[in-house]
Design a protein around this nucleic acid. Sequence first.
DNA 1: CGGTGCGTTGACATTTCTCAACTGTTGTGG
DNA 2: CCACAACAGTTGAGAAATGTCAACGCACCG
Lengths: 237, 237
Amino acid sequence: MDYHGNMVHLAIAETLKRLPHFRTLSDDVIAQVSACCRLRSYQAAETVFMEGQAAKSFFVVRAGGVRLYRLSATGREQVLNNLRPGQSFAEAALFNFGFFPASCAATGSPTELVEVLGQPFMELFKTDETIAAAMVGSLCQRLSVLIERLDELSTVSAGARLARHLLKLPIEGTTPPLELKLPLAKKDLAAHLSITPETLSRLFGRWRDRGLMETAGSTLRIFDVNTLEAIADGDGA
Amino acid sequence: MDYHGNMVHLAIAETLKRLPHFRTLSDDVIAQVSACCRLRSYQAAETVFMEGQAAKSFFVVRAGGVRLYRLSATGREQVLNNLRPGQSFAEAALFNFGFFPASCAATGSPTELVEVLGQPFMELFKTDETIAAAMVGSLCQRLSVLIERLDELSTVSAGARLARHLLKLPIEGTTPPLELKLPLAKKDLAAHLSITPETLSRLFGRWRDRGLMETAGSTLRIFDVNTLEAIADGDGA
DNA sequence: CGGTGCGTTGACATTTCTCAACTGTTGTGG
DNA sequence: CCACAACAGTTGAGAAATGTCAACGCACCG
């Protein structure tokens, strides 16, 4: 393998190692997987694949982003998912369907994808059982997270969802002015919780007025954890 | 293997073959997997496992049902999921965590579970690559279904969700009195769509008044598919 | 300095839920 | 076979939660 190819595959390995599916694999195996991959570049709005095409690969977003969508009978575009760096997609197409069940276009420019070629990868998959175990493990985990979020979303109020989220965050300090830093911009946090930024802001405002906490930019100081936990359990609003 | 054991393993194979994870496997492989399993019976409310226990197996519901739940710090029980026959659970515990991240209790009586023993199963998993491929495929598929539902839930109105659901159902007839049968009781359909039975009833009522459809028990006759599609696309309410 | 985008706040609209009453059906025990 | 309980489904009235639209301050960046 020439010098250039080596660099490319190192870059690919770098991306793969960050992927939940492969995070637990040894460097050696990662290198083998990298050898099954190609690096591809797209401009914004460029098509990666179309619904119905034969699926011979799956993909990992390295930079930029992609949109998965389907065209309805009436020509309307229904967006299924927007993917960002570090996420993989179309595994199901490769392992299950044999064709892409949706279309895919780049959203950012430049968008760089790692294309994991199905044929050599499946060889490796059959040979090295650690890959299969790692993928099954990571898929199961994502699945349980999603299931939890799904019924949380339909069962639990916005306030309780926010409270639960906060209580999962890493906390600094042990005595009542507990301090924590939001890892996301508030608008992204809102999106994650499936609420509007306005509602998020109002929840914080309400809790601030009640003396429950204090907000300073992206750091919160929590005075009353017990009440917050009660809210997380759906008791108060 | 004695006659009785044989019967049991046939029954187990029966259950496994219906499982999405294993649906695509050959009878031969299914039989091998069955050999890794035991059949277990529980009474309603009986505990299957507790949060934190070492996970040496995963399970498939054969009859009855189970509830997965977690106990919050305050002792409140938070239900994560209710599982019915044909569903598997705790794969993640086995493949990922090594312990159960939630507790599990039977809800029906009698509840029969197939326990897939981790140790022999993992052996098989490493030996026979078709198992790994089948599991990855089925997990990916469930994942994409869930992702779709998740953002549908936060993006799309109750009416649109119902319309989408109806349009996915098998339809009888091709010319405008399109007829379809609801496979679930209306209250279960409502739960599936994360709405209340009342809202469901009102949606049907509204559409009936608009001349869009006709309801007779669990069969619907749809007169205007175009409008229904428009509603599914979020255009009208 | 002006622009752009996040966060906040207010007023208002809307969707959906909750509670309650009523109907119709089904299944059961007398 | 009937009466009655139990439950799914429907309908109405009102309340609550959340979204929408609009305005504004404020920080950051060219």
